[in-house]
Amino acid sequence: MKRCLISLLMLVAGVATAAEFDYGLRAQRIAGDVYAFIGKTEDFTPANGGNIVNTGFIVAPGGVIVIDSGPSRRYGEQMRQAIAAVSERAPVLVINTHLHPDHFLGNQAFAGVPLAALPATIEGIASQGNAFAENLFRLTGDWMKGTEVRVPQRALAAGTAEIAGRRLRLIALDGHTGADLAIYDVASGVLFAGDLAFFQRAPTTPHADVGRWLAALDQLAAITREAGFTALVPGHGPVTRDAAPLRQTRAWLTWLEGALRRSAGDGLDMNETLDRPLPSEFAALPVAANEYRRSVGHLFPAIEQEVLGAGR
């Protein structure tokens, strides 16, 4: 009974200290009317509440275009307030770049605003969104309170579109997931790369197709060579004025795929592969060891299957 009381007290204390659930979102101006909220380069924890992701917005003539809505209802609400502190224009469109939960679970805060995504992203959020949300509840706890999945309804097509009086190039790619949308704001030269680009944080691979991802990086790299390009907002990690996030993401993926292939080819099993040391180039990258461990789980079985033969 005494133990129960103590745990109860600890629970109350825990709730009290995190009572504000303040993500501390401050819009970082990237260029002209283009802003981003830069998350921590960490894993999901109850301390960061899932604020490990970059989101952004563009103040267009016809209203605010929101790019990703963060990991929770609270994040979305606080994001909306932080946007209001920058512009009095109302949000007119929320775009979800892909189906991972830290990019769409703030959708609830934008009730009445159209939610848009690529068709495969819409399908994925509809079918797997609740499972993703449950997982984030487990990882971050009460920050997620009241969060429910809102599935985007408006399907986006690749190509240049005029949205709220702003010309956006919608680039439909894949490789990080089955559908990854990158957005290039022509007027400012800012490229929102979504999770196709990670910077100063190891990439995540739960739905990755490494070959497709590398091809997508080629396409994004071509945009950074255009005359008008000014900045790249990766899905995770700091904003750059060059293609460094694309190079770093490519280097990680190339090494990862090669290391897993060598390991499988040498006859190592999953435990032995997990035990392999990270090269010094990547060892200091935030969450590298954790992401390598997860990636072995995600990618090794298929590579192993190729090495063992297609079946006979």
Binding site: D266, G267, Q305, V307, L308, G311, R312
Partner: peptide, 8 residues
Amino acid sequence: NLVSGRQW
């Protein structure tokens, strides 16, 4: 029951 395998 398709089997694939390899010896080193």
